[in-house]
Protein backbone atom coordinates (compact mmCIF):
# COMPACT_ATOMS: atom_id res chain seq x y z
CA UNK A 1 0.00 0.00 0.00
CA UNK A 2 2.86 2.35 0.71
CA UNK A 3 3.51 2.33 -3.02
CA UNK A 4 0.16 4.06 -3.45
CA UNK A 5 1.17 6.76 -1.02
CA UNK A 6 4.42 7.19 -2.92
CA UNK A 7 2.43 7.42 -6.12
CA UNK A 8 0.24 10.12 -4.61
CA UNK A 9 3.29 11.91 -3.26
CA UNK A 10 4.77 11.75 -6.75
CA UNK A 11 1.59 13.28 -8.12
CA UNK A 12 1.68 16.25 -5.80
CA UNK A 13 5.39 16.83 -6.01
CA UNK A 14 6.28 20.28 -7.40
CA UNK A 15 8.37 18.47 -10.04
CA UNK A 16 5.10 17.64 -11.85
CA UNK A 17 4.90 21.25 -12.99
CA UNK A 18 8.52 21.81 -13.89
CA UNK A 19 10.51 18.57 -14.57
CA UNK A 20 11.10 17.06 -18.01
CA UNK A 21 7.54 15.72 -18.27
CA UNK A 22 5.21 18.38 -16.88
CA UNK A 23 1.85 16.88 -16.02
CA UNK A 24 -0.35 19.62 -17.52
CA UNK A 25 1.48 19.30 -20.81
CA UNK A 26 1.10 15.50 -20.96
CA UNK A 27 -2.53 15.77 -19.93
CA UNK A 28 -3.17 18.33 -22.66
CA UNK A 29 -1.48 16.05 -25.17
CA UNK A 30 -3.58 13.12 -24.08
CA UNK A 31 -6.81 15.09 -24.25
CA UNK A 32 -5.77 16.60 -27.58
CA UNK A 33 -5.29 13.19 -29.21
CA UNK A 34 -8.55 11.98 -27.76
CA UNK A 35 -10.59 14.97 -28.83
CA UNK A 36 -9.16 15.13 -32.34
CA UNK A 37 -9.74 11.43 -32.98
CA UNK A 38 -13.20 11.55 -31.44
CA UNK A 39 -14.28 14.43 -33.67
CA UNK A 40 -12.96 12.75 -36.81
CA UNK A 41 -14.57 9.44 -35.87
CA UNK A 42 -17.89 11.15 -35.17
CA UNK A 43 -17.84 13.07 -38.43
CA UNK A 44 -17.41 9.79 -40.27
CA UNK A 45 -19.60 7.50 -38.16
CA UNK A 46 -22.63 9.60 -37.25
CA UNK A 47 -23.96 10.25 -40.77
CA UNK A 48 -23.13 6.69 -41.75
CA UNK A 49 -24.90 5.31 -38.68
CA UNK A 50 -27.96 7.46 -39.29
CA UNK A 51 -28.07 6.26 -42.85
CA UNK A 52 -27.95 2.65 -41.69
CA UNK A 53 -30.54 3.30 -39.00
CA UNK A 54 -32.87 5.21 -41.28
CA UNK A 55 -32.71 2.83 -44.22
CA UNK A 56 -32.09 -0.34 -42.25
CA UNK A 57 -29.49 -1.35 -44.82
CA UNK A 58 -25.91 -2.31 -44.03
CA UNK A 59 -26.74 -3.16 -40.47
CA UNK A 60 -25.19 -6.62 -40.56
CA UNK A 61 -22.05 -5.19 -42.08
CA UNK A 62 -21.83 -2.62 -39.28
CA UNK A 63 -22.38 -5.24 -36.60
CA UNK A 64 -19.71 -7.44 -38.15
CA UNK A 65 -17.37 -4.48 -38.32
CA UNK A 66 -17.72 -3.65 -34.65
CA UNK A 67 -17.14 -7.32 -33.81
CA UNK A 68 -14.01 -7.40 -35.90
CA UNK A 69 -12.78 -4.15 -34.38
CA UNK A 70 -12.99 -5.74 -30.96
CA UNK A 71 -10.70 -8.53 -32.09
CA UNK A 72 -8.07 -6.12 -33.45
CA UNK A 73 -5.24 -5.60 -30.95
CA UNK A 74 -4.84 -1.83 -30.77
CA UNK A 75 -1.23 -2.13 -29.61
CA UNK A 76 -0.23 -4.06 -32.72
CA UNK A 77 -2.19 -1.72 -34.95
CA UNK A 78 -0.45 1.30 -33.46
CA UNK A 79 3.01 -0.22 -33.78
CA UNK A 80 2.64 -1.46 -37.32
CA UNK A 81 1.17 1.79 -38.62
CA UNK A 82 3.93 3.74 -36.94
CA UNK A 83 6.57 1.59 -38.62
CA UNK A 84 4.80 1.93 -41.96
CA UNK A 85 4.50 5.74 -41.96
CA UNK A 86 7.83 6.20 -40.22
CA UNK A 87 8.37 7.16 -36.63
CA UNK A 88 8.52 10.84 -37.65
CA UNK A 89 4.88 10.73 -38.69
CA UNK A 90 3.81 8.76 -35.64
CA UNK A 91 1.08 11.31 -34.77
CA UNK A 92 -0.63 10.51 -38.07
CA UNK A 93 -0.38 6.78 -37.43
CA UNK A 94 -1.71 7.16 -33.91
CA UNK A 95 -4.61 9.35 -34.99
CA UNK A 96 -5.58 6.85 -37.65
CA UNK A 97 -5.57 4.04 -35.08
CA UNK A 98 -7.63 6.04 -32.61
CA UNK A 99 -10.16 6.97 -35.27
CA UNK A 100 -10.44 3.38 -36.45
CA UNK A 101 -11.13 2.27 -32.90
CA UNK A 102 -13.59 5.09 -32.28
CA UNK A 103 -15.77 4.54 -35.33
CA UNK A 104 -17.53 1.23 -34.49
CA UNK A 105 -19.07 2.27 -31.16
CA UNK A 106 -20.27 5.60 -32.56
CA UNK A 107 -21.68 3.85 -35.61
CA UNK A 108 -23.47 1.35 -33.40
CA UNK A 109 -24.81 4.09 -31.15
CA UNK A 110 -26.07 6.09 -34.11
CA UNK A 111 -27.98 3.32 -35.79
CA UNK A 112 -29.14 1.75 -32.55
CA UNK A 113 -30.50 5.15 -31.59
CA UNK A 114 -32.47 5.31 -34.80
CA UNK A 115 -33.69 1.77 -34.44
CA UNK A 116 -34.76 2.27 -30.86
CA UNK A 117 -37.37 4.77 -31.94
CA UNK A 118 -40.82 3.22 -31.80
CA UNK A 119 -42.03 2.57 -35.35
CA UNK A 120 -45.49 3.82 -34.40
CA UNK A 121 -43.99 7.16 -33.48
CA UNK A 122 -42.33 7.36 -36.87
CA UNK A 123 -45.60 6.44 -38.58
CA UNK A 124 -47.39 9.08 -36.58
CA UNK A 125 -44.80 11.66 -37.62
CA UNK A 126 -45.29 10.70 -41.23
CA UNK A 127 -49.04 10.79 -40.91
CA UNK A 128 -48.98 14.42 -39.80
CA UNK A 129 -47.11 15.25 -42.99
CA UNK A 130 -43.41 15.31 -42.07
CA UNK A 131 -40.99 14.77 -44.92
CA UNK A 132 -38.50 11.90 -44.56
CA UNK A 133 -35.81 14.45 -43.70
CA UNK A 134 -38.01 16.05 -41.08
CA UNK A 135 -38.78 12.64 -39.62
CA UNK A 136 -35.06 11.91 -39.42
CA UNK A 137 -34.05 15.25 -37.93
CA UNK A 138 -37.02 16.04 -35.70
CA UNK A 139 -38.08 12.62 -34.51
CA UNK A 140 -35.49 9.93 -34.97
CA UNK A 141 -32.38 11.97 -34.19
CA UNK A 142 -33.59 13.54 -30.92
CA UNK A 143 -35.18 10.33 -29.66
CA UNK A 144 -32.06 8.35 -30.57
CA UNK A 145 -29.66 10.92 -29.13
CA UNK A 146 -29.11 9.22 -25.76
CA UNK A 147 -27.99 6.04 -27.49
CA UNK A 148 -25.76 7.97 -29.86
CA UNK A 149 -24.09 9.63 -26.89
CA UNK A 150 -23.71 6.23 -25.25
CA UNK A 151 -21.82 5.22 -28.37
CA UNK A 152 -19.65 8.35 -28.31
CA UNK A 153 -18.97 7.65 -24.65
CA UNK A 154 -17.74 4.15 -25.48
CA UNK A 155 -15.58 5.54 -28.27
CA UNK A 156 -14.09 8.24 -26.03
CA UNK A 157 -13.14 5.69 -23.40
CA UNK A 158 -11.70 3.41 -26.04
CA UNK A 159 -9.57 6.21 -27.43
CA UNK A 160 -8.43 7.50 -24.03
CA UNK A 161 -7.32 3.97 -23.17
CA UNK A 162 -5.47 3.46 -26.40
CA UNK A 163 -3.84 6.87 -26.15
CA UNK A 164 -2.04 5.56 -23.05
CA UNK A 165 -0.11 3.32 -25.43
CA UNK A 166 0.98 6.30 -27.56
CA UNK A 167 3.96 6.81 -25.26
CA UNK A 168 5.48 3.65 -26.71
CA UNK A 169 5.81 5.34 -30.10
CA UNK A 170 7.29 8.46 -28.52
CA UNK A 171 4.11 10.50 -28.62
CA UNK A 172 3.95 11.35 -24.95
CA UNK A 173 0.56 11.63 -23.37
CA UNK A 174 -0.08 10.33 -19.88
CA UNK A 175 1.18 6.89 -20.84
CA UNK A 176 4.73 8.17 -20.66
CA UNK A 177 4.68 7.92 -16.87
CA UNK A 178 3.61 4.31 -17.05
CA UNK A 179 6.18 3.47 -19.68
CA UNK A 180 9.00 5.18 -17.79
CA UNK A 181 7.83 3.78 -14.50
CA UNK A 182 7.84 0.21 -15.76
CA UNK A 183 11.11 0.57 -17.64
CA UNK A 184 13.05 2.43 -14.95
CA UNK A 185 11.35 0.60 -12.10
CA UNK A 186 10.34 3.93 -10.60
CA UNK A 187 7.12 2.64 -9.19
CA UNK A 188 5.97 5.91 -7.67
CA UNK A 189 5.89 7.39 -11.15
CA UNK A 190 4.12 4.31 -12.53
CA UNK A 191 1.43 4.36 -9.85
CA UNK A 192 1.04 8.11 -9.93
CA UNK A 193 0.65 8.01 -13.71
CA UNK A 194 -1.85 5.17 -13.53
CA UNK A 195 -3.92 7.11 -11.01
CA UNK A 196 -4.06 10.15 -13.30
CA UNK A 197 -5.08 7.94 -16.22
CA UNK A 198 -7.85 6.32 -14.20
CA UNK A 199 -9.12 9.68 -12.96
CA UNK A 200 -9.16 11.00 -16.51
CA UNK A 201 -11.15 8.00 -17.71
CA UNK A 202 -13.65 8.42 -14.87
CA UNK A 203 -13.98 12.12 -15.61
CA UNK A 204 -14.66 11.49 -19.29
CA UNK A 205 -17.13 8.74 -18.45
CA UNK A 206 -18.89 11.01 -15.97
CA UNK A 207 -19.01 13.85 -18.47
CA UNK A 208 -20.72 11.71 -21.07
CA UNK A 209 -23.04 10.13 -18.52
CA UNK A 210 -24.20 13.62 -17.63
CA UNK A 211 -24.53 14.58 -21.27
CA UNK A 212 -26.56 11.45 -21.92
CA UNK A 213 -28.92 12.39 -19.15
CA UNK A 214 -29.29 15.95 -20.34
CA UNK A 215 -29.99 14.81 -23.88
CA UNK A 216 -32.76 12.41 -22.98
CA UNK A 217 -35.93 14.18 -24.12
CA UNK A 218 -37.97 15.15 -21.06
CA UNK A 219 -40.98 13.09 -22.11
CA UNK A 220 -38.89 9.96 -22.46
CA UNK A 221 -37.27 10.50 -19.07
CA UNK A 222 -40.69 10.79 -17.48
CA UNK A 223 -41.75 7.52 -19.08
CA UNK A 224 -38.76 5.79 -17.55
CA UNK A 225 -36.26 6.02 -20.39
CA UNK A 226 -35.09 3.49 -22.90
CA UNK A 227 -34.29 0.94 -20.21
CA UNK A 228 -37.98 0.60 -19.47
CA UNK A 229 -38.81 -0.71 -22.89
CA UNK A 230 -36.18 -3.39 -22.74
CA UNK A 231 -36.78 -4.52 -19.22
CA UNK A 232 -40.38 -3.70 -18.44
CA UNK A 233 -41.75 -5.36 -21.54
CA UNK A 234 -45.36 -6.38 -21.37
CA UNK A 235 -45.68 -6.31 -17.65
CA UNK A 236 -46.24 -3.37 -15.43
CA UNK A 237 -45.10 -5.42 -12.46
CA UNK A 238 -41.78 -6.86 -11.31
CA UNK A 239 -40.76 -10.10 -12.98
CA UNK A 240 -41.59 -12.23 -10.01
CA UNK A 241 -44.36 -11.26 -7.64
CA UNK A 242 -42.60 -9.57 -4.79
CA UNK A 243 -45.00 -10.65 -2.10
CA UNK A 244 -44.82 -14.20 -3.30
CA UNK A 245 -44.11 -17.17 -1.14
CA UNK A 246 -41.20 -19.12 -2.45
Amino acid sequence: MSVFLEGIAWLFSPDRLSGPNPLPERLAEHLGYTLLALVIAAVIAVPLGYLIGHTGRGRDLAVGLSGAARALPSLGLLFVLTLLVGIGDAPVAATIVFVVLGIPPILAGAYAGFESVDRRVVDAARSVGMTPLQVALRVEAPLGLPLLIAGVRSAALQIVSTAVLAAYVNLGGLGIYLQRGIQLRSYDEMIGGAIVVVLLAFAIDGFFALLQRLCTPAGVRVAGGAAQTTRGRRHRRPATPRGAAQ
Partner: peptide, 15 residues
Protein backbone atom coordinates in the same frame (compact mmCIF):
# COMPACT_ATOMS: atom_id res chain seq x y z
CA UNK B 1 -23.05 -7.80 -29.27
CA UNK B 2 -23.26 -4.11 -29.98
CA UNK B 3 -21.20 -2.20 -27.46
CA UNK B 4 -23.01 1.08 -27.86
CA UNK B 5 -26.43 -0.39 -27.31
CA UNK B 6 -25.63 -2.58 -24.37
CA UNK B 7 -24.97 0.71 -22.67
CA UNK B 8 -28.51 1.94 -22.51
CA UNK B 9 -28.43 2.91 -18.88
CA UNK B 10 -26.07 4.98 -16.88
CA UNK B 11 -23.22 2.55 -17.31
CA UNK B 12 -21.20 2.41 -20.48
CA UNK B 13 -18.80 -0.30 -21.44
CA UNK B 14 -16.14 -0.03 -24.05
CA UNK B 15 -13.12 1.55 -22.42
Amino acid sequence: EVPGTAAEDAVTGGG
